[in-house]
Design a protein around this nucleic acid. Structure first.
Lengths: 188, 188
DNA sequence: ACATCCACGACAGTCACTGACATCAGATGC
DNA sequence: GCATCTGATGTCAGTGACTGTCGTGGATGT
């Protein structure tokens, strides 16, 4: 048998989410998280950059999937429609994970530091989206602005999905949010 | 004469900006900032919540001015046009401060922690804007989405203003960014 | 068998941030 | 004038996030 229990990183994530939920983010020390995962504090920092980042694993993959979907959208699609394709792709990655997401969002909402880090992840998403749009030939500042609009739709749609008592589909909410955004900013 | 030199908070801001520019945010300790301002580390934390916040004074006032302008926009104005009024109000507060803003933004751009905090300030701005729009009778999710769109226009317009070699007006860039955003997301 | 690898533990250190208490020039009340 | 109070600052002793360095011992390849 192996020298250590498997999935140290995942155990740390699980322990952190539990402890943040039980006693709050600020009242939890990294040493406590590591102890619950059967590891030491030093090992926590080998797997996760800091005490906040432990809740945001996979966000890079999400940005990559977003960018890939936007890049592969039909060449004839308008920038905002390519963004819509990307939103659908992201939403797909959340199917069946609503309960986990709800617990995670409750923890994030309760901590200013975690909310701050969440904004960084959304900004990274916006950056990846901007790059993908520029790859489609969209010039600045349209690329950045369309990306920001798409992230706004994602942000609001995500919040509505998490808050909705019914267990619906994230894509439903992001699509509706994008539609509402276009209506609210519409030139007509 | 008074017991202490005046404007301790302002001296700390000045010292921090200088040191962050000279040797970088991470390579600067709070004790060094305090020493340059002729104060102690403990006093730094009496005036500024943390090492990042020292560069973001006045952001609450900005959010309040934004919200006030939106609230006072003509009742007949569409939500997005009320936002445009608010953007003009904010822009006015930056007139004549371009050089200071450029130095400050260069420092922020060089530090992940400072960029993270900047996102919080933009999010606070978005929250204040959302509240102001709701005060105008705009329902959700339109209020949040219109607010996010307005902040996106501000963010991009601000970046263009700072990057522009000519010393133009911020309002010029925020207006154009809002126009471009509406064109990019337009339903037509 | 033997060397190599590498995830982890152990330990010491820096620094952001906090709480508690002391200090003392100037404002205030009489 | 004098005592008293006020409040911005100094001092000091913490806690805890994060880092650099070195040691350890099962696993792995030859």
């Amino acid at each position: 048998m192996s020298r250590w229990q498997p999935d140290a990183s995942g155990r740390l994530v699980k322990a952190a989410l539990e402890l943040y939920a039980e006693r709050g983010y600020e009242q939890t020390t990294v040493a406590e998280i590591a102890a619950r995962a059967g590891l030491t504090e030093r090992t926590f920092f080998r797997h996760h950059a800091d005490k906040r980042e432990v809740l945001f694993g996979g966000s890079r993959e999400m940005a990559e999937a977003f960018a890939a979907a936007v890049a592969e959208a039909p060449g004839s699609a308008a920038p905002i429609d390519a963004v819509a394709v990307g939103l659908d792709a992201i939403a797909e990655g959340f199917t069946g994970r609503l309960e986990f997401v709800r617990r995670r969002q409750a923890v994030i909402a309760a901590s200013a530091e975690l909310r701050e880090r969440e904004l960084v992840k959304l900004a990274s998403l916006a950056d990846a989206l901007t790059v993908a749009l520029r790859g489609r030939g969209v010039a600045e500042p349209a690329a950045s602005l369309t990306a920001e609009a798409g992230i706004a739709a994602f942000k609001v749609g995500f919040a509505r999905w998490v808050a909705d008592p019914d267990d619906g589909e994230l894509a439903h909410w992001t699509r509706d949010s994008l539609r509402a955004l276009r209506a609210a900013t519409g030139e007509g």
